[in-house]
Design a protein around this nucleic acid. Structure first.
Lengths: 381, 381
DNA sequence: GACACGGCCGTTATCGCTAACATGAATGCG
DNA sequence: CGCATTCATGTTAGCGATAACGGCCGTGTC
């Protein structure tokens, strides 16, 4: 059936005749070779083993006798061998294509994620393909997921996509492993890379409290993202721990947009007893809060402290610069690719590998926080 | 000498016996395949051509009849084919790695550029490696360039790196083609992808003038970027054309940062005869201008119109949203990769290919511009 | 002592793609 | 009209690595 192979074997003078074979081995000179890099064959010859054994040693897979391993390792070292990633991932046939899908996320956020993902991808010869599903409705998303699942062997889903059950289901059905970035709660079926939103939120709220703030306004994140609730919980916990009564008049709904932050901050500052600090669930809304404060003639941080969340570029393009929580987004992208690759590789087993990778966040103190002014200072100014 | 090979051939029952070989050929059915991705063979079959022809079409190399090309292109589209990067670069043995280097650019800008570059890269099986040279001095840049030139076969340089003579020289010496993104003036030795800053600036200034603005403040861009001067020239040309006398008191130096915009706008609005509109050389500085206006109790656009430049995400995260000039940054990234690949491919000739690709910009009208209020309206409010 | 079993390592056949060469048709030229 | 050329496409042979499989050999096991 495989006609070229058949023909080759029926033809005299080819590989099928041992004697002739040896002869024709002579004119074998790679007319193709361009790179002068050392290959696995060179190492194999040097160590007097087969290329396969070298591969086993290099990848630490399979069983190799200690003496052999050492011989190979020495050869690798002495020849300065570096595996060709392209060849490796081709041969391993491990689908090496990973989708990164986004739907209108914060620009800064996506950029960081891409930077991270790419850094890892170029190390491991993985291929990132990005896809924008801006403005897709649920049905379109489902379709796109189904189509994409056919051509990639892994997918990275930043928020808010990672919360979409139907998209997740589509990938799961196709057997394509998925990593959710920064989803608030761990879903048991898929891998996650995230920070501990609760602890981070708790920390920054505690920072505000340590500066003697007692009336702290809170601007919530989008209700369809679980991270929002986590951040709110962390805030409340910090309050409770400090023995501060939770005042729900100081909480406003936001949607992670500058616009929504404007509205929420406006309401907060129009209160008869306005807060002395505002904790916004992301940097965009925190920027908006600063803008509103300025418009009302308040100085930040003297009259009002403001903190954000994420440490996106918005945090440093406003003035004063925001105190916020840094998410290591680039590292998260890196980690996501790593997890996916690992999972894809061990696809032989039926065991799907699910990891929940929680990364360290960092409280970044900048200029938007100060102790509250003495009572009456504002009207006196 | 090669003892393992010798042993194998002397051993009975192995590949050296033709008969046995034929028998074992039967059960040959790709036991290997794991990825269900669309391959070049699938496309070839669908388009009823050989894989080689598909390769030619996808890579734009060699000669293919127009009709055939279209058939293949349709097949590619309908099957959703994406070339396998690993296989491609393995076969071609061609360095297919392209560096994208950045030094602290606007986040939104880089993201767009990456998105564009990657889109093309995944189409053409190129591999993008990104590198950050944040905070490098001239010497460090030179060193990094030299090192990088050894491992990549092309480089994309967004501003301000594309203005660095020494970096350019380093790549040129190594024979690595370079594409400068959005450099203001075309350098004759390297390829460029940019918009016509002069015309774009002229256009948006004319828009302001058409709204009957006569006193227009201008915030300049960073003096070390040639695009800044181009934008300034376009502004002045529009003024001259409308017969408006150029008033240098209405021009302030800026540095493309929010912070510098704050200062410049502050000076402009503190003037005895403040402008009725401000033209900032980028969106960040325009956002700052809005912030300053708000702090002074001015309504935008009623009391002050503001326009920006670039249409980065900053343009839509402020309120009111900015009227600005849209640079097709993603498309520019795409184009840059394309140019590089084309150049790399025809490396056989000694002719270096230099192109100057000027892309179309677009005036985006949003809510930050209105005709100037009647004199005295502000104090009356 | 025959047979099963598992550690160690070699052979083979690809992975998906493309450089180089081969082929065949259309065209040019004297 | 024959033969060189060019154009358009197919064929062959790998690129450098690994999965799958099988052979050899020492160890148990009954």
């Amino acid at each position: 059936m495989h006609d070229s192979a058949g023909r080759a074997c029926g033809t005299p003078g080819t590989a099928c005749h041992p004697k002739e074979r040896m002869l024709e081995k002579k004119p074998r000179k790679s007319l193709r070779r361009k790179s002068n890099a050392v290959t696995i064959d060179a190492v194999a010859a040097y160590a007097k083993v087969s290329p396969m054994t070298v591969s086993r040693v290099v990848n630490g897979r399979g069983t190799v006798r200690e003496a052999t391993r050492e011989r190979v390792e020495r050869a690798v070292r002495e020849l300065g061998y570096t595996p060709n990633l392209a060849a490796s991932s081709l041969a391993a046939a491990r689908g090496t294509r990973i989708a990164l899908i986004y739907t209108n996320p914060s620009a800064a956020y996506l950029r960081e994620l891409l930077v991270g993902a790419l850094r890892d991808a170029s190390r491991t010869a993985a291929q990132i393909v990005i896809d924008s599903w801006d403005g897709f409705d649920a049905e379109a998303e489902r379709k796109a997921a189904r189509a994409l699942a056919k051509s990639v062997s892994g997918a990275i889903l930043p928020p808010p996509l990672c919360e979409s059950r139907s998209v997740l289901a589509e990938f799961a059905e196709a057997g394509v492993p998925v990593v959710a970035i920064a989803a608030g709660r761990a879903d048991n079926d898929i891998s996650h890379v995230r920070i501990d939103d609760f602890r981070a939120s708790h920390e920054i709220a505690a920072h505000l409290i340590a500066q003697r703030h007692r009336r702290i306004g809170f601007i919530m994140g989008h209700p369809n993202q679980t991270a929002s609730a986590r951040r709110f919980d962390g805030f409340k916990a910090a309050l409770a721990e400090a023995g501060i009564e939770f005042d729900k008049a100081l909480v406003q709904q936001g949607y992670f947009t500058y616009r929504s932050g404007l509205k929420a901050a406006g309401k907060l500052l129009a209160l008869r007893h306005p807060p002395t600090a505002i904790f916004a669930s992301n940097d965009d809304m925190a920027s908006a809060a600063i803008s509103v404060a300025h418009r009302r003639g308040l100085d930040v941080p003297r009259d009002l402290s403001v903190v954000g969340f994420d440490d996106t570029s918005a945090a440093t393009t406003v003035w004063p610069e925001l105190t916020t929580v840094r998410q290591p987004v680039a590292a998260m992208g890196d980690a996501a690719v790593d997890i996916l690759l690992r999972d894809i590789r061990r696809r032989d087993r039926d065991t799907r590998m699910v990891v929940d990778h929680v990364m360290a966040h960092q409280l970044v103190k900048r200029d938007s926080v100060a102790p509250p002014a003495a009572r009456g200072a504002r009207s006196g100014a």
